[in-house]
Structure formats: C-alpha cells, structure tokens
C-alpha cells in the first residue's frame, strides 16, 4: 500500500484544523458577543457548507482559483501561488468547507456560559482579551476540543471538493479518499480496503479519545 495518500490526508486535516481554530475563535466570539446587524446573514453563510453539495463549493472555488479569474490572478501575482490543483488550494478549500464544524460548537460553548462570568471578569478590571483567554476559553474546553476534532474528521472525509479543485496528483492533492475511489475504479478492491480500514480505525480512535476526555472534563465541573 502506498502510504503517501494517507500521510497527505492527515497533513491536510491537521493544517486545516489548526488554521480554522485560529480563524474560528474570533468569529465565534464575535457572533456571540458582537453588537452588529446582519448576524443572521453571516451565520447562514457559515452554515452553507453543511447543506450544499461539495461539488457546488468545489465548482465555485475552481472558478475563483483559476488564473483567469481576478482572485486567482491576484494570488498568483502577489504570492506566486497557483491555487488550482495545488496543496495550498486544497487547504483554503478545506478551511471554507469545514468552517461550520469549527465555528458552531465553539459558538455553542460560549453561549452556554453564564453571562455573569464575563461581567465578573470585567468588574475585576480585566480586558475583553484577558476575559476571553483566561475565563471564557478555559471554561469551554470541551466545546473547543469537539470543534477541533469534528473539523479534523470532516476534513479527512472530504472528497467532492478535493476532486473538483485538487484533482489527483500523487503527493500533492491525491488524498486517501480520492485514492480509495481510484482503486475502486481500477477494480483493485484489496488496496481500496486497506486505505478504508486505516481511515476507519484512525478516525474511530481519535473520536473515542476525544469523547473520553470530554466526559472526564464535564464530570470534573459537576459537584461531587
């Protein structure tokens, strides 16, 4: 079995999850505590990848990333990056595609905290930033962990978007889900099975570990 697609899959999922965590924390905070109109529009946009077929997102990203489109041309000119059929393009597509999986659990976690925690921190002289990092985040650890793992698992399971904008370049864009598809197309069922088993086992173990940790974290917060 060629391990390259598996390594690529987990590399893509890891990078995507870390990037999304950084992006999602301020967005989730803003959605919960921000004062602005049009929150509904932003929330609907973030949720789109949940309901749209991946091919729709893949199709529009393919158009936008192509060097003939202003966005693709801009990226290519200023950063020297071509996003179609490249690993960087896959990362950007995965970030957009998994956005709700990171933002929604974190938003729910922040919303579930009693408002008095935040206000208590303010009356103790702490800034919004100090309050967020030292009070709010530590108290929604389970939500953040869940969000991270859901995003990771969802990116591992990505197929349609990858196929649309990444194609099938070994070592660059050929991730495990695409490799499985190729092997099945070639009637090479044992190879497809090997990839599938590895994905199945690893994702199961990750989810198992996370839910065990979460249960423990939640138990600690309950009175004895």
């Amino acid at each position: 079995m060629d391990t390259q697609p598996l390594i690529l899959t987990f590399k893509l999922a890891g990078i995507t999850s870390v990037l999304l965590l950084v992006i999602a924390l301020p967005i989730a905070y803003w959605l919960v505590f921000g004062k602005f109109k049009g929150r509904g529009v932003v929330e609907a946009l973030i949720g789109m990848p949940l309901v749209l077929p991946p091919s729709v997102i893949g199709f529009y990203l393919l158009l936008a990333f192509s060097p003939s489109h202003w966005f693709g041309a801009f990226i290519e000119e200023w950063m020297g990056l071509r996003l179609v059929f490249s690993f960087q393009g896959l990362v950007i597509a995965s970030v957009l595609y998994s956005l709700p999986f990171m933002i929604y659990p974190i938003r729910a976690g922040l919303q579930a905290l009693p408002p008095s925690l935040r206000e208590a921190s303010y009356t103790l002289g702490k800034s919004e930033w100090q309050t967020f990092t030292q009070v709010l985040l530590p108290n929604c650890k389970p939500a953040v962990l869940t969000a991270f793992v859901l995003t990771f698992a969802h990116t591992v399971g990505e197929f349609g978007v990858v196929l649309m904008i990444g194609g099938n370049i070994p070592g660059v864009t050929k991730v495990a889900s695409v490799a499985i598809y190729n092997e099945v197309e070639a009637l090479n069922y044992p190879a497809a099975n090997a990839y599938a088993m590895v994905l199945f086992a690893i994702t199961f173990i990750i989810l198992l570990v996370v839910y065990s940790i979460n249960n423990r974290l939640l138990r600690v917060r309950q009175p004895a």
Binding site: P114, S116, E119, A120, S121
Partner: peptide
C-alpha cells in the same frame, strides 16, 4: 468597583 453577582459568578476552572 466590586460586584457580587446573584449567582456568585465564580470561575469554575
């Protein structure tokens, strides 16, 4: 100021 909340608002962690 000091503020004592009705639900105490102690930081659980």
């Amino acid at each position: 100021i000091g503020f004592v909340f009705q639900d105490y608002a102690l930081f659980p962690h």
